[in-house]
Structures are given as structure tokens and as C-alpha cells.
């Protein structure tokens, strides 16, 4: 993420990360997840799913911030993100919620 000014507490802020999953065959190709992803993680597939729709493909998996918007805007229960387990500076593992 680019900032016009680096926030003073940037080092303390924990940026959540997620893994996006797509259930290709549930997708009906409305494209809402692609349109509304704030990180532009997704793009429409070239290929078709079982029902002949272009489902979302994950273009930039590392950019997902686990905001879940794709998941809650999807009318077809076809996409969702799960928090990444990240190792914190210390030793304890932390799960993003």
C-alpha cells in the first residue's frame, strides 16, 4: 500500500492478510467481487466454469487484506477469504480476524 505520508505509527499497525478462495462452479460471473475489491486482487477468468460463466481468478494473491467484501457482496456463495496465519515479530503466532 502506498502512502502520501508515512503514518507515525506505521510500524505498530498490523496489516491483516487473507487467502482468497473461489468455488468456480458456484460462480455466475456477475463480476461484483472483481469490481469492488479495494486491492484489485481479482480478474475474470478466460475460461468457463461448468455453467459457462467467467469466474474470478486471483491475480495478486499477496495483496488480499482479508476485508471479506468479495465474500459478502457475492450473491452466489462462490468466493471467500480466510485470515492468514502470520508470525509476529515475537514468537507467538497470531491469526487475523
Amino acid at each position: 500500500m502506498e502512502f502520501w505520508r508515512k503514518p507515525l505509527d506505521a510500524d505498530d499497525i498490523h496489516i491483516t492478510r487473507g487467502n482468497v478462495y473461489v468455488l468456480d462452479d458456484r460462480c455466475k460471473g456477475c463480476g461484483y467481487c472483481i469490481e469492488f475489491c479495494p486491492q484489485k486482487v481479482l480478474k475474470a477468468s478466460k475460461g468457463f466454469n461448468k455453467k459457462g460463466y467467467h469466474y474470478p481468478e486471483i491475480l495478486k494473491p499477496k495483496d488480499c487484506l482479508n476485508c471479506h467484501y468479495c465474500e459478502i457482496i457475492c450473491p452466489d456463495f462462490a468466493i471467500y477469504s480466510i485470515a492468514q496465519v502470520v508470525a509476529e515479530k515475537g514468537s507467538k503466532n497470531e491469526v487475523n480476524k
Partner: peptide, 18 residues
């Protein structure tokens, strides 16, 4: 019963999900 009968782009699924 999924996929449901709602058309591509129909918002009912999103409201149902909410």
C-alpha cells in the same frame, strides 16, 4: 441446493448472505 436459482447479478443472494 446450491447453485440457487437467482440470475447472474441478482442481488437477492447477497441479501440472503447478509
Amino acid at each position: 441446493r446450491i447453485p440457487h436459482i437467482w440470475c447472474s447479478g441478482c442481488g437477492i443472494g447477497t441479501i440472503f448472505s447478509a
